[in-house]
Design a protein around this nucleic acid. Structure first.
Length: 569
RNA sequence: CGGGGUGUAGCGCAGACUGGUAGCGCGUUUGGUUCGGGACCAAAAGGUCGCGGGUUCAAAUCCCGCCGCCCCGACCA
């Protein structure tokens, strides 16, 4: 392809609304163009890379035995009511009406639709196991789209769903997808880290996320410094710290703490450490108020609490509810005397003398002892793990990192198959419910994650497998006819071998072409000039390396082909 | 949804406080010179100054409302 015939609108400067490196580079290299918040057009070169990612995904899904289907993006609201997820995902969905005033949504995911398919088409254990997948555009009304393709309102996802006769069989399906994901990301040239994850609104028993480690990642993770444990912060456990036990004979006493509401304010006012405080949070769990206690220096993990309570909704109580439940304004809640269930973090099981809110305006209690002065309904691991916490498996220190979630595999169980009665007759003629799994890859996000992980100060560094083209042929001076002639011959020969070539035939200064070559980041650059021709050679340079190699014209095709083969194997 | 910012030519920005009818760099077009790391000379095209209303002789500039976009937070498969 000639540069003058395609459209690769490179930019010298990054648009002002691009924030992270990969987003800036995709814009500058002319791969994508913004239409609106979270909405992007794929330009010709960007689309080529996207299609390559899709092809890799498709090949590996097929290899893993999954069946490709294509489900409607437009879905009736009813199926969302049927699974009970309309209430949960309502705000995240684009909702529209057809001309009959029927309620429709643009699908943010397809558990409901695929389960309906299974319900209609799977009747016998003989048809199982089955895994279906599709590569399709999803729509999510994101609260805050950002970072280009990373979090967009419309994006391409590969979603797969498995149906099995038993939990054991479901494990095998899960493992097959897990293994396929490892291969997919590896082929895309990505280094990923697999972490344990929260299942969130999808539901199910457990899940793994495939993370691309990057400071710009939206997810926090912790990983053990020695063993293999790694988890999303939404899920991450930590070995319960025992702390220093303390005790007192003194009974709780009220102290005045005028206007001191936060942990920081109270601890500095009373000259104690945040650790000495107990943070009391009032939540509404499925319409009922509860109290949650964590040590003053920790943050509550709402995902963990939701899971433990097995509730559908969990939200911080409003000021009015807090006043009603505690008798005090926000900032002075404490567990002593509360009439609602109290859940406490495991760390608070160690005997300790604490400061808590007094459930009265401008007052706190000192000398509070857990279980002596109030009763805890139950203890659980309730806090967000953080850097320095001990690994739940081996007890060694953990560190915190950031990651971009590119894939997520869930063991779903029967949540959807029950709701849609997706089952089968077993060998004894008994009706059974299918065990499901679901597996997602953010295709567009993966593409950007590759760039986020592979660039330098000059531009993108494409892995061979998903580069828009494999070779960038540059003729610095297109006025030099002999250079152009040799270039065209070389390109024909390369293309005859199935190699994808971009020919920078623009009438531009050499500097412009070299800068753009680095920016676009194609893996191999071949320069043909008066200078190289004087030696009868072509200058070949890999984007990953500094050094150029002078290759005799006759050997160039074989040389380039061997580089490509080497990288794709 | 809360807080902050921003909107002027395709891109990046100045002009706004102090009102007088819009400018710079890059890019684009034409001609010429040049040709190995974002050239130079000359000429040119391109803007309802986000939208609507108000104040004023006069509004990019002041006032009111709305919208888009960006950042932080809340939220989120």
């Amino acid at each position: 392809m000639r540069w003058t015939q395609t459209l690769i609108p490179t930019l010298r400067e990054a648009p002002q609304d691009a924030e992270i490196n990969s987003h800036k580079l995709m814009m500058r290299a002319g791969l994508i163009m913004k239409l609106g918040g979270g909405l992007y057009t794929f330009m010709p070169a960007g689309l080529r890379s996207l299609r390559k990612v899709e092809r890799i995904v498709r090949e590996e899904m097929d290899r893993a035995g999954a069946l490709e289907v294509l489900m409607p993006a437009l879905q009736p609201r009813e199926i969302w009511e049927q699974s009970g997820r309309y209430a949960i995902l309502r705000d995240a969905m684009f909702k529209i009406k057809d001309r009959q005033q029927r309620d429709m949504v643009l699908g943010p995911t397809h558990e409901e639709v695929i389960t309906d398919l299974a319900n209609r088409q799977i009747n016998s254990y003989r048809q199982l196991p089955k895994t279906f997948y599709q590569i399709q555009t999803k729509f999510r009304d994101e609260i805050r789209p950002r970072f280009g393709l990373m979090r967009a309102k419309e994006f391409i996802m590969k979603d797969a769903y498995s149906f099995d006769v038993s939990w054991e069989a479901a494990d095998a399906s899960y493992q097959a997808m897990y293994d396929a994901y490892i291969r997919i990301f590896k082929r895309c040239g990505l280094r990923t880290k697999v972490v344990e994850a929260d299942t969130g609104a999808i539901g199910g028993d457990f899940s793994h996320e495939f993370m691309v480690l990057a400071d710009s990642g939206e997810d926090g993770i912790v990983e053990c410094e020695t063993c293999a444990y790694a988890a999303n912060l939404e899920r991450a456990e930590r070995k319960t710290p025992t702390g220093k036990p303390s005790t007192t004979d003194q009974l709780p006493a009220v102290v005045a703490t005028p206007g001191k509401r936060t942990i920081e304010e109270v601890s500095s006012f009373l000259k104690v450490k945040p650790w000495d405080l107990i943070k009391t949070l009032i939540y509404i769990a499925d319409d009922k108020p509860i109290a949650v206690l964590v040590a003053g220096h920790r943050e509550l993990n709402e995902h963990k609490l939701t899971r433990i309570l097995k509730v559908a909704t969990l939200k911080l109580a409003d000021d009015e509810t807090i006043m009603k439940v505690t008798g005090a304004p926000v900032g002075f809640a404490g567990p002593v005397g509360l009439k609602i269930p109290i859940y406490a973090d495991l760390e608070l099981q160690t005997p300790r003398v604490s400061v808590t809110g007094a459930n009265a305006d401008d007052s706190h209690l000192i000398n509070v002892m857990v279980e002596r002065d109030f009763t805890v309904t139950s203890f659980h691991d309730l806090v967000i793990a953080k850097e320095g916490d001990k690994c739940p498996r081996c007890g060694v220190r953990m560190r915190e990192k950031r990651g971009i979630e590119v894939g997520h595999v869930f063991k779903l169980g029967t949540k959807y198959s029950k709701a849609f009665d997706a089952g089968f007759l077993d060998a004894s003629g008994n009706r059974q419910i299918s065990i499901m799994g679901c597996y997602g890859i953010g295709v567009t996000r993966t593409l950007q994650a590759v760039i986020e992980q592979s660039f330098d100060e000059n531009g993108i560094i494409w892995p061979m497998a998903i580069a828009p083209y494999q070779v960038d042929v540059v003729v610095p001076n297109t006025a030099h006819a002999e250079s152009v002639r040799v270039a065209e011959e070389l390109i024909s020969a390369l293309e005859a071998r199935g190699i994808e070539v971009l020919f920078d035939d623009r009438d531009e200064r050499p500097g412009v072409k070299f800068k753009d070559a680095d920016l676009l980041g194609l893996p191999i650059r071949a320069v043909i000039s008066e200078r190289s021709l004087a030696e009868g050679k072509v200058e070949v340079k890999r984007r990953t390396e500094q050094d150029k190699q002078m290759i005799p014209i006759a050997d160039t095709v074989a040389f380039i082909e061997s580089i490509i083969k080497g990288e794709l194997s």
